[in-house]
Each structure stands twice: as structure tokens, then as C-alpha cells.
Design a protein around this nucleic acid. Structure first.
Lengths: 414, 414
DNA sequence: CTCCATTTTTTCGAGCCTCAAAAAAATTCT
DNA sequence: AGAATTTTTTTGAGGCTCGAAAAAATGGAG
């Protein structure tokens, strides 16, 4: 059972709340913070005095060009960019991207690099990651000691503790404890996150109006991934990063999936599956290793131009996604969906069949009210999510430390 | 964003924690409570003195026949049965069951009644419920004023606020706000819960070792229902009671389901579906209204005896359940499963195909490690879950009241 | 230019709450 | 009967938040 609340926890939690309020609002005044947190002015005053004294917050002009109102002007409270820094490492197919971000969220150093992830050895892959991180840490603009956290993201399955990649489509290697490796190498706390989960975190940060308590981010790429936020919390499985939406069974015994099983949603909606159907290769054909974005765009163009196997391939993708979403909606009730990735740019080809399929399912009662957003470029989203993830960690675990600082990723606050 | 923690919340939460610890442990000593809650002895002493003064707890002998150890003997703290009472109302197919339960969890009055729910008018159905509740409240053994909460459970879909039944297979009526009706009639706070969710609550209460943080309760009855506990919390959809496992799509365009759609899991695994397949009526045949338990048991007996359509019907049920569970496990990772209801008694016929199907899915990697329990009788479970639900409400909202007493069901603490 | 109205922020005292340590209570063992 | 042991209560200290009042900082009116 959950443990009692100690007296000291109170201050810790309220500190964290104030920091979170500032991060969200930008440059709120003390009065605004009091309003959003529900705490009294005196408490906010005391806590913010502490935080300023510790160099975590800094005073400045308020966000609104005030001076219109009478009375003592508000003093804006902002995050002190120099309070700390975090690092994001995004590993995707043939690509490695690293950035250092200050406490206020600005990128202060970055590097990107092409790799051949599918053929690299385990050691080479790890080596590249360690090397690129080291180069960034040696950047003269960066104070190494200020880097408080590293967040990695990778396509594939990670464990719930956010320590290791268990399996990924971008490499034949399995079970690499990237978080432990980087921690050991640089002595900086690190976590290993699932890319789709980071997309969800970023969407929530970008548009809290639309993506608040319940929503779904679906990555339409070579494979199909999902990030799910339920009741305001990032949903992960109990053991792994979970949400293996792409491997829900669409048709028992159906098309061959990259995972070796049959009939998964991905085996109809992943890039390789659309490609396979468009080229009429048959559902038992071994999935190709990669289809370039340009090839996919060409496929979509053809499908738009004329009826034929290309158009049919997208229809099948839509159907699979629709039934999958429908089954998901049977479990969690419908929620806004963001489609991310190359094939999101071909969503016009996918949507009709998708909606029709959803309408055949339990979730389909409100089929018309379900709304879709599209975002063709996943990488920036993933990086942004990683940054927020790492910064939130610093906010909570370093600047509002409690007795029970957990080893793992802490709470799944999206 | 969540609101700051007030100073008064502290006491409230710790009071609730102490009550919960006593409810769980039976008759713990103050020292034991201190150990399980993590609070200091002095705090426990202060809080329990308050609670005894208010008549919520009462001193007595400790649960263990102690006197073996040296030193001052422990004083057991138990719930005072007279502190309050709650009422459970379980509405199932052709059956209505009501009980009054004291604060310590003992049944002190009950009544059961056969109805013809499928043909009753809306008014008659509501009237029966109101009448049976009134009769129990007029029982001379019951002090009406002590009844602090009514929990209803029904098969079907309820809303997230636990106010209304939205749809149920046991009646053609829809959208009956039972909770509001009973509240208005008797002035006692009421909630309307989903039966499978109550099963899950009860399982957790009965066997916290096995059913702790993550598990699944599946009702194998005329229809297929599910109660899901994830990370220690009852999982409900965002709008409805959610978990419409029975209406996940097993085969797109497949067998006709009672819900009017095609290919749902229930259309292969519900009693009517097993019946339909056993009688070789064809998948488009309109589902029958009811199959008696005796008929189902006869079917199972035949299936055990010889190969034939009966055995094949159970195989198909297993397959559908297996693929459904597999898809679920793709999302949430595998967890222990309890099979409840008549067909749980025929689980031997279902299990082989079920396991084979799971092995074909993403969740199937750990197929062998997934364990199933069976419990053929759902009604006692549902009643027990309702009772715990209502008692927990009294513990939290009445005996540890806070500023923000929410209107709805409060937190989903299973 | 001065003074008042207005709004934000800080200060101060009160009231709770939890905690650690010590004291008191209630037994068993010798 | 006294020592040892364990549970429970008491006591005092330290923290935290809150409301009210004071202080600060500005715009507007005369």
C-alpha cells in the first residue's frame, strides 16, 4: 500500500508544483502562480524566494507587456537557463541526433550523424552513441557539470524502468542497457525512452488544449508505433514500454509481419506492408528492410492519380488501422489521434477506409467525432519530448528532492 | 494541472491511510499500523485516539493470539461495525440482489428477487429497485441513518462518473441514472458500477497476493465482460466504464454479435455464440436471448465426451478469447487472468485453443507464464466488490473528509 | 508635483501537523 | 518481587501553510 505523507514531503511537492507552474506558464507573476496552484500568496512568496536564492528561478519582466493596469506591476518569474542543462539522444533508423538544452528549454548545442544502424555491430552502435555524447560534452559552450540528465529515445521496445532497449527494428541487436552505459561512462543520470511515448509528451507540451488528458499518437513509419496518454499520464505497459499497437492482431493468420507473426496491424499498415501490397508481392513475402521516404511519396502520388494496387494498398492500411483503433477504443473510449510520420502525409488515402473500419467497431459509435491531426515529421517531436522528459526530471528530482528519489524514470507525468 | 497540497490535506490523507490500514489488516496494533504506513508512532497514536473518540475505530484484542511475547501486549484496533453501514444492489439478468453491510464488512440484512428484466418496462425496473431498497431500509435491524452509501452494479456500460447505466444486455432500456434516482429517493449517496469492475475489486480484496497491481477479470457469461486493474488502479474508459473487451474485433466482418456488429470476440465466446456454433446454426443467426446455465453445462459435458460441433464451438471460443487477450497483452503486457462465470467451468475445453491463439500474438512471448484462475460463480464476487467499493468511499469521503470532496466515484482505488 | 487608489509582494503571528526522545504502561521471565 | 521487554502515550521542537496586515510600486486625478 502507498506510504503515509511525511511532513517534509509537503514542501517538496509544493516546490515541484511551483517549478512546474513556471515551466508551463513561461514568465508568470507570483500572483498567477498562486492562482494556478491554489496555494496562498504567502506560500508562493516563501517558496519562490527559496528558489530564486538557489538560482533555479530568476526575476524578470512578466510575459504580458503589462503596465496597462494600475497598481504595483507584476514581476515575472522565469526559469534560470543556467540552473542546469539536459541532453537528448534520439536514435532512429540510420540516424543519430543529439542536443544539449538549457534549463529554460533552449537548444545550446547539437549534432546529427548518419549511421548504418541495420548492419552495425553492438559495440559500434554503443560506441557511436558514447562518442557523440562525449563530443557534445566537450563543446566549449557547455559546462559539463551543469548537465543533469540524459534522455535517450529509440524506436522499439524499452523496459518500464527506462533503462534499456529490449528490441528495436533499427538494429538486429537486442537488450542494450543504454541508460546504464551512459550513466557509467559520464556519471550523468540517463533514461531510455520509447520514441512514440516521447511524441506524445511533446504533443501535450505543444498543444495542451487539444492533447490534455486522453489522446493517442500513432507513428506511421516503416513500423507502426503508438504513444498513449490516459487520464493525464503516459501509459506504459507493466513490464515494457507497452502500447504495441502495431502488433495487435488484425486478421488471425493473415499477412506476414516483420515481427515474424501473422496478421498484425503493422503487416498491413507499415511502410513495408503498403509497399508489398502496392507491388502485389503477396502477403507471405518477406518484408523489405527499408523503403525510402521518397519511394513512399511516389507511391502515394500514384495512388492519388489512379485506381490500382497502390490505392488498394493504402485502403488496406486504413482498414487495418481502423480496426485496430476500433479495438483500442473499445477498451479506452475514443480520444483525439495524432498521426505522425511519412505516411501521415498520405492520410488522405488512408482516412476513408480507416473511418469505415472504425464505424464497424464498438468504438465506432462516435466515429464522426473522432478527429485526426497529421504531422509528417516525427524527429523534431521526439526530440522535443525527450527534452521535456529530461527537464521535468530535473524539476522534480533534483530541484525538489524527496526522501524516496526513485531509481527509474519517476512518475509518468506526460 | 493538479492543485497544491494544503496543510489540512495532510491530516486528512493520513487519517484515510490509517483507516485503510485497519480495514486491510483486520485488527492491527498501533505499532503495526506505524510500520505499514511509514508514519511515526506518535502520529499513529494521535490519529487513532481521534478515530476512537469519533467512534470509527474501537479497541479490542489483537488479531494474533499474542501473549507469547514478553512486553506490553499489543492492543488491537478494529473498525467499529456500528460506525456506518452501506448497501449493495446487484442487478443481473432476471435477478436482483440487495444487501446491507456494516462498517466492518458483515452482512446484516439481505434480500434477493427474481424479475423478468428483459421484458420489464423502464418504470417497473426502476420501481423494483427502489422498492427492494426501501424494504431493506425498513428492516427493524437497520438504523436508516447509518446507511452512508449505496453501490449498484450492473452488467453493461456505465458512465465514468458512476451515475448511470448507459446500456445493458439485461434490459432493452438505456440511460437510466440509477445513482441519481436512488439518491433522490433516499437521500443517500449512490454510485452505479460496472459488474466486471466490481469483480476485479473483489478479487483484489480476496487475494491481494495474486491480484495486486495488474490483473484481468473476464466474465464468461451470456456476454463477455472485463474488469482491468492496472498499476493498482481500476481501469475505466475516459467516458464510460470502458474495457469493452467482448467487443474488440476478432474477425473483421465475421460472426454476428448481439451488439449488432460483426466479428466481436463475444460473437464467438459468449454463451449464445457457443450455443449457436454447437447447434451449427451459422454465424449470421440472430443471437438467442438467453441460454440457461444447465444448458451450457450440458453442452460442455457433450463436448468433453466426444469430438463434434460442441467441442469445436468451445475451440472457437478459446481462439477468439486468445486473440483478444493477445491484442490486449500487446497493449498492457501480460498479467494474471481470472475467468469468472458459467463458462469458466468449461475452461478446460477453452484453454488449449486460447493458449495456442495467444502464442500467435505479440503478448504470446510469455504465453506459458500467463496463469488463469477460474471462478464459476460471479454473483458473490460482484456483491463483495460493491461492498468494498462503498465501504472504501465511506472510509475516504466521510471519515476523512477533505475540501475537494468530488461528486463522482472519487479515485479508482481498487 | 502631490496624493490617492490600486495591485502585487512581503512580513508576521497563529494554528496544525509530524517527529524524535523520553516517559509511562503492561506484561513475561528469572 | 524485580528486571527485561515491548507497546503506547506524552512532551517539546521544528516546519509548513494560512490569513491579515503592512509594505512596495505604480497610474491617475487634481
Amino acid at each position: 500500500m502507498s506510504v503515509g505523507i511525511r511532513h517534509d514531503d509537503l514542501r517538496r511537492r509544493n516546490r515541484a508544483m511551483v517549478i512546474a507552474a513556471v515551466r508551463r506558464a513561461g514568465r508568470p507573476s507570483r500572483t498567477e502562480i498562486a492562482a494556478t496552484t491554489g496555494l496562498s500568496h504567502s506560500t508562493i512568496s516563501a517558496i519562490s524566494a527559496d528558489l530564486i536564492g538557489e538560482g533555479i528561478l530568476a526575476e524578470g519582466k512578466p510575459s504580458e507587456a503589462g503596465s496597462l493596469k494600475r497598481g504595483r506591476p507584476q514581476v515575472g518569474l522565469g526559469l534560470n537557463p543556467e540552473a542546469a542543462a539536459v541532453m537528448t539522444v534520439v536514435l532512429s533508423l540510420n540516424f543519430l541526433s543529439v542536443a544539449v538544452i538549457d534549463y529554460a528549454g533552449q537548444v545550446i548545442s547539437e549534432e546529427q550523424r548518419r549511421l548504418d544502424t541495420l548492419t552495425m555491430s553492438r559495440e559500434a552502435l554503443i560506441g557511436e552513441c558514447v562518442a557523440i555524447v562525449r563530443r557534445r560534452l566537450e563543446d566549449p559552450d557547455i559546462d559539463v557539470r551543469s548537465v543533469a540528465r540524459i534522455a535517450l529515445a529509440i524506436q522499439g521496445i524499452t523496459d518500464t524502468d527506462a533503462r534499456a532497449m529490449l528490441w528495436s527494428p533499427i538494429t538486429p541487436q537486442t537488450d542494450i542497457a543504454f541508460a546504464d552505459i551512459l550513466e557509467a561512462e559520464f556519471g550523468i543520470p540517463a533514461t531510455m525512452e520509447n520514441d512514440c511515448n516521447m511524441m506524445a509528451v511533446a504533443l501535450r507540451w505543444r498543444d495542451p488544449e487539444r492533447y490534455r488528458d486522453d489522446f493517442i499518437a500513432i507513428l506511421l513509419s516503416h513500423g507502426i508505433g503508438m504513444g498513449l496518454v490516459l487520464k493525464g499520464e503516459l501509459f506504459t505497459g507493466t513490464h515494457s514500454s507497452g502500447g504495441e499497437f502495431g502488433h495487435m492482431i488484425h486478421r488471425p493468420g493473415g499477412a506476414l509481419c516483420r515481427c515474424g507473426r501473422r496478421g498484425c496491424v503493422e503487416a498491413y499498415a507499415g511502410n513495408y506492408a503498403i509497399w508489398r501490397n502496392a507491388k502485389q508481392l503477396g502477403e507471405d513475402t518477406e518484408p523489405v528492410a527499408d523503403v525510402s521516404d521518397a519511394q513512399m511519396r511516389a507511391l502515394a502520388a500514384t495512388a492519388r492519380e489512379r485506381a490500382g494496387p497502390e490505392r488498394e494498398a493504402y485502403r488496406k492500411a486504413g482498414e487495418a488501422l481502423g480496426y485496430g483503433l476500433g479495438s483500442l477504443f473499445a477498451l479506452i473510449d475514443p480520444a483525439p489521434v495524432a498521426m505522425v510520420g511519412v505516411s501521415a502525409a498520405a492520410f488522405d488515402l488512408i482516412e476513408p477506409a480507416l473511418r469505415e473500419a472504425i464505424a464497424q467497431t464498438a468504438g465506432g459509435q462516435h466515429s464522426k467525432s473522432i478527429s485526426f491531426d497529421t504531422e509528417p515529421n516525427e524527429l523534431p517531436l521526439i526530440r522535443e519530448g525527450c527534452a521535456m522528459r529530461a527537464l521535468t526530471f530535473v524539476d522534480q528530482e533534483i530541484f525538489a528532492p524527496g526522501v524516496q528519489a526513485k531509481a527509474g524514470a519517476g512518475k509518468n507525468v506526460a
